[in-house]
C-alpha cells in the first residue's frame, strides 16, 4: 500500500495522471473530499484519518460516513490506499508494526481505536472477507462454526448447527454443501470457498462486513454469484467493499468512494459517480484514461 514517489511513478495509472496533469494539489494534506461523504444516521463515522507506514504516508485526512445497511464501494488505481483504509476499519493493520493510524473511527457510539476497545471484540462486530479465499484447512462445518465457538455465542450443539445452517443459507452455499459438511472446506471450488468465507464472516453476526476485492480471484460466474449475495446481504448488514472492477462497484453499491494517491477524492451516489462525477480525477479514472 505504501509508496515512495518513485514507486508511484512506476504505476501506469499514476504515470498517465501525472502526464495529463491530473494531480491533486500538492502538499494539500487538508484536501476536502467532494461530493457527499456524510450521511444522516451513519453506522460508522470516520474522520480525519491519516495512516503511515513508517515514514510513508498512505492515507491523507480521510473523512467519510458509512450508512446503515448500505453497500459502499471503494475504487481507485493500485496503491491509492483503498485497501489500507478498509483494513484500518477493523484494525487489521495492528499486526503491521510500522503502521500508525490517527483520526477517529466511530462504530455506532464506540471509538474503534480507543484504549478501551478490545480488538477481539471489535472483530466480532466488523467481519472481513479477503481477496483470496482463505478457508481454514478444516471441515466446512468447522469453518463456519469457528467464529461462534470462539466468541462463545452458542452453548448447545443444536444451536451451533442452526447457526451454521443459517449462515451457509445466507451465503447461498447450503444447497451445495449440506451433504458434505464434514468434508474439508479447501476441497470446494474457488467461488464456493469465497462464499464459505462469507458464511464464516456472517456466522458471528457482525454489524459491518468488509470485503477486500472478494472477486478478484474468481471467474465471472462465481463473481456474479457473489455479487448477488452482496445485494442480499445488504438487507441485514452494512458492507464496505474494495474493488478493482468499476462495473462491479456500479452493480453492487449504493455509494462509491474514489481514492487517489492516498486521498479520498470523491464520495457520491454510485449512479452519480459513474454518470456525472464531480471531480476531474474521478472522471479520468472511470473513463479509463488511467487506472
Amino acid at each position: 500500500m505504501t509508496m515512495t514517489a518513485n514507486e508511484a511513478r512506476d504505476l501506469p495509472g499514476a504515470v498517465k495522471a501525472v502526464k495529463e496533469g491530473y494531480t491533486v494539489h500538492d502538499s494539500s494534506a487538508d484536501y476536502q473530499t467532494v461530493g457527499s461523504p456524510f450521511v444522516a444516521e451513519p453506522k460508522m463515522r470516520i474522520r480525519n484519518v491519516d495512516v503511515f507506514y513508517g515514514s510513508e504516508q498512505a492515507l491523507f485526512n480521510v473523512s467519510v460516513d458509512i450508512g446503515k445497511n448500505e453497500v459502499i464501494a471503494m475504487i481507485g488505481p493500485s496503491g491509492c490506499g483503498k485497501s489500507t483504509f478498509l483494513r484500518s476499519i477493523n484494525r487489521m493493520n495492528d499486526t503491521i508494526d510500522i503502521c500508525k493510524v490517527s483520526g477517529s473511527f466511530i462504530l455506532d457510539e464506540d471509538d474503534i481505536y480507543a484504549k478501551s476497545m478490545d480488538v477481539v471484540a471489535l472483530r466480532a462486530r466488523v467481519g472481513m472477507v479477503f481477496q483470496k479465499p482463505n478457508p481454514f484447512p478444516k471441515s466446512i462445518y468447522d469453518n463456519v462454526a469457528y467464529g461462534p465457538k470462539l466468541h462463545g455465542l452458542v452453548s448447545r450443539k443444536s444451536d451451533l448447527d442452526e447457526v451454521v445452517e443459517t449462515s451457509l443459507k445466507r451465503a447461498g452455499l447450503w444447497g451445495e454443501v449440506k451433504d458434505r459438511l464434514l468434508k474439508p472446506g479447501t476441497g470446494l471450488s474457488g467461488g464456493q470457498q469465497q462464499r464459505l468465507c462469507i458464511a464464516r464472516a456472517i456466522a458471528i453476526s457482525p454489524d459491518v462486513i468488509l470485503m477486500d476485492e472478494p472477486c478478484s480471484a474468481l471467474d465471472p460466474i462465481a463473481t456474479a454469484r457473489i455479487e448477488e449475495l452482496i445485494a442480499e446481504l445488504s438487507e441485514n448488514y452494512t458492507i464496505a467493499i474494495v474493488t478493482h472492477s468499476m462495473q462491479q462497484a456500479a452493480r453492487v453499491s449504493q455509494r462509491t468512494a474514489y481514492f487517489h494517491l492516498g486521498k479520498l477524492i470523491e464520495v457520491n451516489d454510485t449512479e452519480r459517480v459513474f454518470t456525472n462525477p464531480e471531480h476531474e480525477l474521478t472522471e479520468a479514472y472511470i473513463t479509463g484514461r488511467f487506472g
Binding site: N90, M92, T95, V120, A121, L122, R123, A124, G127, M128, F130, K132, N134, P135, F136, P137, Y146, G147, L150, H151, C197, R200, A201, I204
Partner: peptide, 17 residues
C-alpha cells in the same frame, strides 16, 4: 500461509488462539 492467520485474526481470534 499468512492468509490463514489473517482469516483467524479477521474473525476475532486472539493472537494466542
Amino acid at each position: 500461509p499468512p492468509s490463514i492467520r489473517e482469516a483467524a485474526i479477521g474473525i476475532g481470534a486472539s493472537p494466542m488462539q
